[in-house]
Amino acid sequence: MLGQEEEQVTSNRPRARDLGINLRGTTGPLNAITDVAGVEVGYTTLIEGDGPLTTGQGPVRTGVSAIFPRGRDGVGNPCAAGRYSLNGNGEMTGMHWIDEVGELSMPITISNTHAVGACHTGVIEWMNANHPQLARQWLLPVCAETWDGYLNDINGGHVTPAMARQALDAARRGPVEEGSVGGGTGMNCYGFKGGNGTSSRVVSFGDTAYTVGAFVQANFGSRDELTIAGIPAGQLLTVENPMEDTDWFEQDLRVPGGSGSVIVVVATDAPLNAAQCKGLARRVPLGLARTGTTGSLFSGDIFLAFSTADNGPSRTGFPTTDPVSDEIFTVQQLPWNRIDLFYAATVYAVEEAVLNALVVNQTMVGRDSHVSPALPHDQLQKLLGTTN
């Protein structure tokens, strides 16, 4: 098992901007979701075995990603939140409560499709150990997934509650590792090796600079759809695409090229209410579309956005005898007629996060020697005209 070190590290591989890809907007200093103050990201990665698939034994290419909106110490203090599902062939738990009250107060985990239960249990165990006072009431963790069964022994039960707890314990501020780590380890995107990507944008509002950050677990898109900086790269790159063969599923099934899923988490420190956060989540598909996808029926495309601006106690739990609990409260809110700046920042950050997930990656061989090829940097730079 590969765990995250005490201080987060980044891959030495280049990111999208390093290849000269023309991308819009001004990034934060890390160009990551952790540019939003307080946000922490952690991983547990599991890469074991090679060769033929034996369910329960491997090969294993999977993991867990964890995101704390306010860091581990801020769990329980809610963030305004909203969500949007472009296509519901996937899972993100805890959404009914977010729809009801417009708040998120739990950490977020992302893993593979058949690991949602293990992550859900792991988060509850972690909460009991680290925030027992909060665990006295109900807990509705946010656990999301995409399918990694092309490379991973997905039915083998390799993701455990302990792995989810380890990812939560590993969460840190600072640079975020991208590519084949955490929940993104076994994922594919546009017929290339996919996984995790992140990006951020700085938005000026009056005398204040706010940040919008995006984190993507990218496992979606057909090869011929891939578009980079307006160029139909997927149609022009000469790399074999074994994922779109008709017989790898070992049944008489044709797996459509757009199959998979994508989970996107958007964070901001701008004072947005729940409806405005939902507006950000609804703009995520526009960022994905800039990379080419048309949204497959066989892809679970589910998005969550939250604001860390109003940092106070929860007002949705059981009432207390404290007189403060009887007081009317007020919060700041961005004017609706200035929201377009934040919509644009979301679109551009999501686009770049997907491209980072592709560019940072390397070729991976998984179960039954299935190959997920890396996006070829040299060919791409020739198409873009950015070769030195």
Rank of each mutant, 00 (worst) to 15 (best):
P319K: 06
L341F: 09
T346G: 01
D301W: 00
A305K: 05
P376W: 03
D326K: 10
F318I: 13
V331K: 12
Q276V: 07
T293V: 03
G366R: 06
S325H: 11
T330G: 15
L297M: 12
W336G: 15
V365R: 09
D301M: 12
V347W: 05
K278C: 08
Q332R: 14
A349C: 10
V284L: 04
Q276T: 07
A309D: 10
Y343A: 11
A289D: 01
D322N: 15
V350T: 05
A353I: 07
L358M: 07
T330Y: 12
A275D: 14
I339A: 14
H370M: 14
R290G: 01
R282L: 07
V365I: 15
Y348K: 03
E327T: 13
G300R: 04
R367W: 00
N337M: 09
H377T: 08
S299N: 05
L280Q: 04
G312Q: 11
S325C: 11
I328F: 12
P323G: 06
Q362K: 11
Q333E: 15
V360H: 10
A357H: 00
A353P: 09
F329E: 15
Y343Q: 12
Q276E: 10
N337D: 15
S307E: 12
G279T: 10
P313Q: 11
F306T: 01
V371R: 14
P313N: 12
A357N: 01
L286G: 05
S296L: 06
T346L: 03
S314A: 14
L358D: 03
V284W: 01
T294M: 11
V359E: 08
F303V: 05
N311R: 12
Y343C: 12
T321W: 10
T346E: 03
Q332N: 15
V371T: 15
A309H: 14
D368V: 10
L358V: 02
T363N: 09
T320R: 08
L288Q: 08
D326Y: 08
A374H: 01
P313R: 12
Q276R: 07
T308D: 06
R290N: 04
D322A: 11
A345I: 05
T293W: 00
S307F: 04
Q332F: 12
E352G: 01
R315F: 07
A353G: 11
C277V: 06
G366T: 07
P373Q: 04
S299T: 07
G287F: 02
R338L: 10
V331D: 13
P335G: 08
G366F: 04
D310E: 12
R367I: 14
E351D: 03
T316I: 11
P376M: 02
S372T: 09
Q332P: 09
P285L: 00
L358F: 03
V331H: 13
P319M: 06
W336D: 15
M364V: 15
F306V: 02
A275M: 09
A344N: 14
I328C: 11
M364Y: 07
N361L: 04
F329A: 14
P285T: 00
A275P: 05
V324P: 07
A353K: 09
R282P: 04
V350M: 00
S372E: 05
G279S: 14
A309S: 11
T294Q: 13
N337L: 08
A275N: 12
A281H: 02
F342Q: 02
H377G: 08
D340W: 05
